[in-house]
Design a protein around this nucleic acid. Structure first.
Length: 425
RNA sequence: GGAGGGGUCGCAUAGUGGCCGAGUGCGGCGGUUUGCUAAACCGCUAUACGGUGUAAAGCCGUAUCGAGGGUUCGAAUCCCUCCCCCUCCGCCA
């Protein structure tokens, strides 16, 4: 959530920031400004009425205890009461309207974010590892996996419909191996604490991280209860500090979790329909960090580095993109995407997205830091470390052999228990 | 799912319509005392919002006793709805 005081005092700064992001939220922004002004007028009025009621009520009490007559005061209070009721309703409505508008305004981009409108305006920061070259025509991961008998999309479709996947045998084992490898790396070497959070969370929790109220379309919701399936464990992890004050000396804090992620992918029909790339359910190892606001950018470099380390050790070719102002997610102040090279598809695929949200989520969830008695909003960061399904797809495509078998990357061999996956009988 | 009990200022508790934004104890902070420490004693001890001011403070007002409504001149206290915790029963991995 944007700071209402900043909006009030420097509307041009915020207006500029929202315009940089594409300008779609500018009408809402102007409404916030207007509503807030209305609210402030209303609240001054209301507080005065309340003050009067309070002193009068006290006076009535005094008169009664002295057995004196209070009828004239009581009569005055009659009118006051009606007026109060009416104005309280107006104030309540105004604050609600302002709040709900404020909740749909996206974060402001950091000054270092490249200006731009579309993904074409994103900047490649670096490219790491060389793309493999094949003496044969590289297949994509779906063809490879199905032929090997380790992926079964037909069965997944029977069970659950389009955009679901099913891993079998060495495939399931490889999926689990990747997740374990990632978790071990982050917990043992990068200092993250592993968390096993709930996969179902409340409306409030979803609102805190920015999924709601604006992106309800993307979420699976339980029919009979106020619970949503998490689209990423970021939701559960970032909310670990909701409504809390953390000692500044304990920061930065880092948590990680392996969870399934559930996404409706509404409006993406016909896009990325093959394989593991865009599923309704996929596993992801998520990284979340909490820090002081001034460490926002340096922490972003750290978390991005932690995600990159997975790709480095798997020896997969990837590149790092600095997303432009127009392509960033709702809550983000600055985002790096990691894209892995997919030889079968001959394309770069997003495999991680690392963002600092500044104090945007902290304000929504009331996460504060105590610094020598002074309390201020904290900073939250999140990054995929990594999406497991897409990583598996990348391993299949990059490590494929002429005979359709898959060599297992060195670091994974202890986890998989073999150095090669061949067709299963 | 059924029955009952409970949620008050960091913690523990007091408080059944006005003297309660809220007492007491512990903890914490500051001070007196002291060679140092401890003890004792004294003082302080929430947050948010608005107005005013703006370097900061201050001052004024409002709100907050799990959340939201309501009753009342006046609500921590009475009523309604919801959330959470505990005990017992049922069910269950």
């Amino acid at each position: 959530m944007l700071d209402i005081k900043l909006i009030r005092d420097n509307p041009d700064v915020v207006r500029r920031a929202l315009a940089d992001r594409g300008g779609r939220s500018l009408p809402d922004f102007e409404n916030v400004l207007a509503k807030d002004k209305e609210w402030r007028t209303a609240v001054v009025d209301l507080d005065q009425l309340r003050a009067k009621r309070n002193t009068n009520a006290q006076a009535v009490g005094q008169l009664k205890s002295q057995k004196k007559d209070a009828t004239s005061l009581l009569k005055e209070m009659d009118g006051l009461k009606a007026e109060l009721k009416e104005k309280e309703e107006i104030e309540r409505r105004l604050i609600q309207e302002t709040e709900s508008l404020l909740l749909v305004l996206p974060n402001r981009p950091d000054a270092s974010v490249p200006l731009g409108k579309t993904p074409a305006d994103n900047k490649v920061v670096r490219e790491v590892n060389v793309k493999p070259s094949f003496s044969f025509t590289a297949k994509d991961h779906q063809d490879l996996g199905v032929a090997l008998g380790i992926l079964d999309f037909d069965m997944a479709t029977k069970l659950s419909g389009a955009r679901f996947s099913l891993y079998k045998g060495a495939g399931a084992r490889l999926e689990r191996a990747l997740a374990n490898f990632m978790l071990d790396l982050h917990t043992k070497e990068h200092g993250y604490t592993e968390v096993a959070p709930p996969y179902l969370v409340t409306t409030k929790t979803m609102t805190n991280t920015g999924q709601l109220p604006k992106f309800a379309d993307e979420l699976y919701k339980c029919q009979d209860e106020d619970l949503y399936l998490i689209p990423t464990s970021e939701v559960a992890l970032a909310n670990l500090v909701q409504e809390s004050v953390i000692e500044g000396s304990l920061l930065p804090m880092a948590v990680t979790a392996l969870t399934p992620c559930f996404r409706r992918e509404a409006g993406t029909y016909g896009k990325d329909t093959r394989g593991l790339i865009r599923n309704h359910q996929f596993d992801k190892v998520e990284l979340v960090r909490f820090c002081k606001i001034e460490d926002s950018l340096s922490e972003l470099e750290k978390i991005t580095g932690h995600a990159e380390e997975v790709l480095k050790r798997l020896e997969l070719p990837y590149r790092v993109l600095a997303l432009c102002t127009g392509d960033m997610g709702f809550s983000s102040a600055k985002t790096y995407d990691l894209e892995v090279w997919m030889p079968g598809e001959k394309t770069w695929r997003e495999i991680s997205s690392c963002s600092t949200c500044g104090d945007f989520q902290a304000r929504r969830m009331n996460f504060k830091i105590n610094r020598n008695g002074k309390k201020e909003f904290g900073c939250t960061l999140n990054g995929s470390g990594l999406a497991v399904g897409r990583t598996l797809a990348a391993v299949l495509e990059n490590y494929q052999q002429a005979d359709g078998s898959i060599n297992i990357p060195k670091v994974l061999q202890p986890y998989v228990g073999t150095d090669k996956i061949s067709a299963q009988g």
